[in-house]
Design a protein around this nucleic acid. Structure first.
Lengths: 334, 334
DNA sequence: ACTTCTTAAGAAAACGTTTTCTGATTATTC
DNA sequence: GAATAATCAGAAAACGTTTTCTTAAGAAGT
């Protein structure tokens, strides 16, 4: 049925080993090489990657495991990772954990069976048992860090970036701010910490809310916030998805940004320049995150025993209309 | 080193074949099954999928090939496909063609080597040579159709949906409209045709623009349009990415939706309820598209010889503020 | 010119499974 | 109770490659 390397060998009148050598670019007699290539053409031979992987023990496959590919941050990183991987002759398998540690563990097991070359992982917060799993492929963590110090990682300087947002709002004249932070990721925790510290340092009235992962949760918290007798003048959201939720809730409450409440957050998703006079955000270097993660992965494959490294990248504050001065405060100052 | 099925067999004091049978759930003596399972636990055995695939000739892998995963439409479909695939014990490999027929062909070749179970493909327009490639796995086309009738496909009723948009704008009082349609996909072509036909039927002044794939192109066309002496009162864009581009261009030109120009289009992306009073769109049933494609794929695997099928799904018009009546026309009518 | 080193190609082993084949034991039928 | 059928477990083959081993021939060194 399917044409194999033996068929090619027969047509080219050489041994299967020689065909293999030609295909893997090792040195063979030019005349033979010619014959083999011609035979490959004429037979329409396509290598069987399963067989190749079994024998060679190289899967040429990496896995990218993230919370949810629909989060534009992960989408962007994934695109970069895929481009680089395919350019290097590597296949990419994509997995969504939905912030579920059990799913994460299941996928890591699966990748073990897949004998992947390596994994790029945005870990869930509770996935602490990962260390115990004894994975025999390198793992590079992205976005989330976790406390253990076992894997390479590339992360944003979350605390500093959150502080930058707080300081920006402070400069704009905001004195009462609230922040929404994802409870499921270490990223949320770190950004929250940066938020609280810098707010304290600036003497702001600040309230940090932990939002559990799930649809509608962030909206509800924002709605509660807005319906208070004395709502904050500015909100911070710890990622792009949550910023969207905040915008929706503000909208639904009949308020608008920045007139009724200012807004700032993380992730420079496409839509953000279009609403509320543009959303002020910390733009993450998504392309660089993907690139760095891939670079660390291949480097780790070459040097399995090297010490674990951590790359911390800076984000960029993009100030837009959403963080304008509060109306009342303005008046007082004028 | 790595523990194999033979090691498990030795520990459990059974033959490798028996271990295989236990693992694949075939009937074996309960006592033996017990011993094997215990041995699997104690040895920490993990099957080697490459070997399994080689021998069993089932890759349990499907590929999803789309233009660009960053397009939210494809992201959403991909998420559904992945969930279903993993639930069925199938791995998913993701590929981005960037509307490049050469890349598409390359990936299809690669999937051939991968011996994938099947492929879900959003084909590029010029990829007509696909028929000649003699792929030995089933292919289900999504989103784009193409003219050949060789593969199963699940598509939107593009012509009818475009007409629905035109009619909606007409009802709102618009008489001069322009449409931007992607030139790279059959989808763009079909939507354009529906646009032109229904505009003609309604006696509208309508202009259809073909936009080649690439960054900034759509923005430029819209900017030109808006700078004309007598610009159209409403715009239609043939997908969500293009709607974003239109919004950007309108913004950059200092105009706003719907006051200066009305807007409607395809794809109900997250941000669309937030800008310009909400964008009026045809929402595609993304989840159903993914589900249907997977269903067709598995069905095709079971019945390779059945006739090719085409599933046409309806979208849903979501009328929002962006398609409000034109200001001047309103006055005339009042 | 003879040994030694290098290079190249074929033969055969190996990769880790599943499947086929074979023989033995148990169940079923008359 | 004997003959036949059905079940089950182990031995061995098979999947399609790459790699190791072996042998032969040519290059290089003395």
């Amino acid at each position: 049925m399917s044409v194999g390397i033996k068929d090619v060998a027969r047509v080219a009148e050489v041994s299967p080993a020689t065909v293999s050598r030609v295909l893997s670019g090792r040195s063979v007699d030019p005349a033979m090489k010619e014959r083999v290539l011609a035979a490959v053409q004429s037979t329409g031979y396509r290598p069987n990657l399963a067989a190749r992987r079994l024998r060679s023990k190289h899967s040429n496959t990496i896995a990218l495991i993230v919370a949810d590919i629909r989060n534009p941050f992960f989408t962007a990183v994934s695109r970069t990772v895929e481009d680089i991987a395919y350019a290097r002759g590597q296949r990419v398998i994509l997995c969504n954990t939905d912030e579920d540690p059990a799913k994460e563990a299941m996928y890591l097991q699966l990748m073990q069976e897949e004998r992947v070359t390596g994994v790029i992982l945005a870990p869930t917060r509770q996935g602490g048992d990962r260390a115990k799993m004894k994975l025999d492929f390198p793992v590079v963590l992205i976005d989330r860090a976790g406390s253990g110090w076992t894997h390479d990682r590339v992360v944003l300087d979350n605390g500093a970036m959150a502080a930058m947002l707080v300081e920006h709002l402070h400069e704009q004249g905001h004195r009462r701010i609230a922040g929404l932070f994802g409870a499921a990721s270490s990223t949320g925790i770190e950004r929250r910490a940066g938020f609280e510290q810098s707010a304290a340092a600036l003497g702001l009235e600040a309230e940090a809310l932990s939002v559990v992962h799930g649809p509608g949760e962030a909206e509800r918290r924002v709605t509660d916030l807005l319906n208070r007798a004395d709502p904050p003048s500015a909100l911070i959201a710890s990622n792009g998805v949550m910023l969207m939720a905040v915008m929706r809730a503000v909208h639904a409450a009949g308020r608008s940004v920045p007139q009724d409440v200012a807004l700032a957050g993380f992730d420079n998703d496409d839509w953000m320049e279009l609403v509320g006079g543009g959303i002020t955000v910390i733009a993450q270097p998504v392309e660089e995150i993907g690139r760095t993660a891939m670079a660390m992965l291949v480097d780790r494959i070459d040097h399995p025993q090297a010490a674990a490294r951590k790359v911390v990248l800076a984000g960029k504050l993009i100030a837009r209309g959403s963080s304008a001065a509060p109306v009342r405060t303005n008046r007082k100052q004028a």
